[in-house]
Design a binder for these strands. Structure first.
Lengths: 250, 250
DNA sequence: TCAAAAGTGTTGACGGTACACCCATGT
DNA sequence: ACATGGGTGTACCGTCAACACTTTTGA
């Protein structure tokens, strides 16, 4: 646990650290962290964010985005993935850089610049994760997010805006669904993210016309009504179409 | 001039620097810089980037993006604007954060993370700038960019991709033109950025239908043929329409 | 008078939107 | 048998794409 309250085992790389000492005098450096906005979706509930409760001051006891210091020998994305794994158990997810936040006063103690990432995962896949036992990690529906530490509320808003924008012209929505899903689940996902109702027939026609989904020979199970057909998104098919000038758009 | 070869007067903030010393041991910090991709356009020529020639090792004598260290008390954007002013004389321009580059080996000497920005300016407005006298600052057409230092080529490519994407759904193209411009100049700008020919009548109809431009009672001067009407982009009008659900799109 | 760019409308194709009913399944 | 969501087609309308000639001006 670091002095700044982020979770990082202390394994300094001595040669790099020594080399840096000389430079530090001429150029005092901001601290560098990564923070992750993890979105989870489940057609039974809604779109949620993963938060952790801070154990250290400042903002002790408040909720915050998972994140921590960047090590000297790892890339920014690697740092984000490591923090995500260490703090929340989340692994192997869609992860993309969002924006870098660097207002001088965003951390009350020291200058800390943070590179924010956002991640997308299916809650149906990993239902509430192994970490739910830990009292300090929890999912919050987007309309019930508690006050957040630092400028994390601003980061969250930026992530929502990015997701809303990007989901319309890149097929990233599928990252929030299990591998096999129904068209109704997909529609509910889009309605939730875009915050507007969509017409069922138009939605289905449009998506199927794109030729990105393969219909499986399977149906939903465990529902108290007619079981819906399951579909799968084909990333390779998308790459192929994209090279032929196809543009995903919804 | 810093040991890392970026241009920054050495004015350490001693109290912050001292406070940081204690943390440095537990958390050796990457150095943090900003780099700027400055795009300039002129309907007589084409889309260009502003580069500076490095005077220090490494990559001595090679071309690079303007940039330098972030100071402890300034925001990232302020650092980008300061470096731009100090190194190239460019001021008061459209500037937006692009992406943060942090591969551990992107600087051969030390870990340096760089927050990249891109800027848009009209060359007709500031024709080749006061700095053209300086031998170490120059504009390069995008299809004639020399080899660049560090990973600056990658940064440039990312900036081009961003510009190409964004120009289609936000009216940022006007930042590359003088305040008063002709529709032909605007069309040439879009053709250059999107790298495809556009139909003159369709282009004009579509833009004028958007109701974002005001026709001025002035025409071009100094051309050896019929002078074209001048137009002006109205940012307030855009904000107003946006709130009514209007989406710029080309 | 010539060269060079400005300016202007119509048509056909396509995709978006709006809209309502029957079907399959589990309880 | 009933409740719940699954699944399907068409008609209208607006927007995009293709396309060529006349006008103005300066040299």
């Amino acid at each position: 646990m670091s002095i700044l309250g982020h979770n990082e085992p202390c394994i300094p790389l001595f040669c790099l650290a020594a080399r840096q000492m000389a430079y530090t005098y001429t150029h005092p450096r901001p601290a560098l962290t990564v923070d992750c906005v993890v979105f989870g979706f489940d057609a039974q509930t809604t779109l949620q964010v993963l938060l952790i409760q801070r154990k250290l001051t400042p903002y002790q006891g408040e909720w915050a985005l998972p994140g921590g210091f960047v090590r000297l020998a790892e890339s920014l994305e690697a740092a984000a993935r490591r923090e995500l794994r260490e703090e929340t158990g989340v692994e192997d997810v869609f992860l993309e850089q969002l924006y870098t936040f660097g207002q001088p006063d965003r951390d009350p103690r020291d200058r800390v610049v943070s590179v924010a990432y956002y991640a997308l995962i299916s809650l149906a896949g990993h239902p509430l994760q192994a970490r739910t036992d830990a009292q300090d990690t929890a999912w919050f529906a987007l309309d019930a997010v508690p006050p957040l530490a630092f400028d994390h509320h601003q980061i969250l808003q930026a992530a929502i805006a990015r997701l809303r924008g990007k989901v319309r012209y890149e097929p990233i929505g599928f990252e929030l669904l299990p591998e096999k899903f129904t068209l109704t689940q997909l529609q509910k996902l889009y309605e939730t993210i875009l915050d507007q109702p969509l017409d069922k027939r138009n939605f289905r026609n449009k998506l199927l016309r794109m030729d990105l989904l393969v219909a499986l020979d399977e149906t939903q199970t465990g529902v108290a009504h007619r079981a819906a057909r399951l579909y799968k998104f084909e990333p390779q098919r998308y790459e192929q179409l994209k090279q032929q000038g196809f543009n995903f758009e919804l």
